[in-house]
Structure formats: structure tokens, C-alpha cells
Amino acid sequence: MKKLVRLSKSLLVTYYAYMLEYRAELLLWALSGSLPFILMGVWSEAARQADFGLSSIEFARYFLAVYLVRQITVVWVIWDFEREIINGKLSFRLLQPLDPVWHHIASHVGERFARLPFIAGLITLFFALYPSAFWLPSLPTVGLFAIAGIGAFILQFAVQYTFAMFAFWTEKASSIQEVWFLVHLFLSGAIAPLELFPPSMRAILMWTPFPYIINFPASILTGLKVDLGHDFGMMSLWIGIFAIVNRWLWRKGLRQYSGMGA
């Protein structure tokens, strides 16, 4: 147990320091997620002129929450993993008495801490420009949001790391991810709160992993209606499914792996 704590601490500290080197780049990444702000403009203008069930301010808050969730759940593991397989670097990782996934997790978590100041800055700037949208969610809401946000990150990571396993068989695993990304962008609530979707479509979507990546945490933070029990259940279910498939593919893939030095 003590060893585990020490191990995870040194991994995290290393990756955090590593990420700090690329601060300028992190700022640009944080800026490149501007899509929610664009949609915020269109939707709050729309809400001013027609009745969509949500007010302009609610839309502004929702999309700010979407921005926040997307920043928390950014995952790029598939590109790293693909490169490791193609360059044969995975071989060295396999020599360590540690599952390579922990390196990836540590690098993502470390990066999150390095990114945090930029996100805080951008959000402050947002409220300075648009003070009427300011709101303080209650403490339990923030707590729930934190749990849902971390869950969304885990789900996103599990999905992408599962796709990454296909790199054992094909050189184009990241193309699968790109298709998934597009689908998820439109179905996860990034373009509009799920409440605005046609009801039948929404009912189907609630059984898929998509809404739990963005819509669910963002709705909690903005105070939209959510079914906590069902949603957390579905989220865990999908994390479980992807984790199992992932471990299965990992074992099959390792037998297949023939990178440099393997």
C-alpha cells in the first residue's frame, strides 16, 4: 500500500512537471475548445426570440458547464498508445513491473492540474464579460458535479483506451477515434442540452454512453433536471463494459504484438 502511494505520487509529480513545460501549448488547447462559446452565442440569441424551455442565461450557464466538462475530460491516450506501438516503445514499458495504463493515466491527471489555472482564468474572464450569467452552485451540487466529472473522464478514457487496443492490429486506430469523436460531439449534448432533442431520440440516447460524457455533468452543474440514480448507474455500467472489453483486447493484443524488440 505504501509502495503504491509512493509510486503514484512520483508518477504524478513527474508528469505534472513534464506538462508544465508546455504551458503555452496548454493555453492554446484551452482556447481551442471554443465551440461551446460559439454555440452559447447562437442559443442564447435563439432563446431571446423563441421559447425553447430554457432562458438565455440558462443556455449561457449550460454551455459554460459544457466547456468546463470538456476541459476536464480531454483524453488523447490513443495517439500516445499508437505511437508507442508503431515505434516499439511499448516493449520498454512492458518490462516495468507496472501496467502501462498507469503511465497514461498519470500523464492525463498531471496535465489536468497544469491546465487548471488557465481554465480558472478563462472562467473568470467569462464572468467579467458576462456578469449576469454568474451563479454560485450549492456545495452538494459542486460535489456531485465533481463526481460526475471524474466519472465522465473515466468513461471517456475507458472508451478511448479500448479503441487504442486496435492499434495492435491496425495502424489507423485513431481513425476509429475520430469517427467516434464526431458522433459523440453531436449526441453527447455538446451542441445543445439533451432536453431540446426530440423525446424519442432522447430516450434512446439515455441508454448509450454519450450523454454521460458531457450532458450529465453539465446538467448537474447548471441545475437542470437529472435522474441521479439512473444516470450514475448507466455511467458505471458503460465504464464497466468498456473496461472489460479493454482488458480482453489487451490480453489478445499482447500476444499479437510484434513491435521493435518484442
Partner: peptide
């Protein structure tokens, strides 16, 4: 990622 920023804005 600078081009990503531009791409994101052009999405408007």
C-alpha cells in the same frame, strides 16, 4: 494547436 484555435473559431 494554434491552428486548432483558428479551426475552432471558423466553426462559427
Amino acid at each position: 494547436n494554434m491552428t486548432e484555435v483558428l479551426k475552432g473559431l471558423l466553426a462559427a
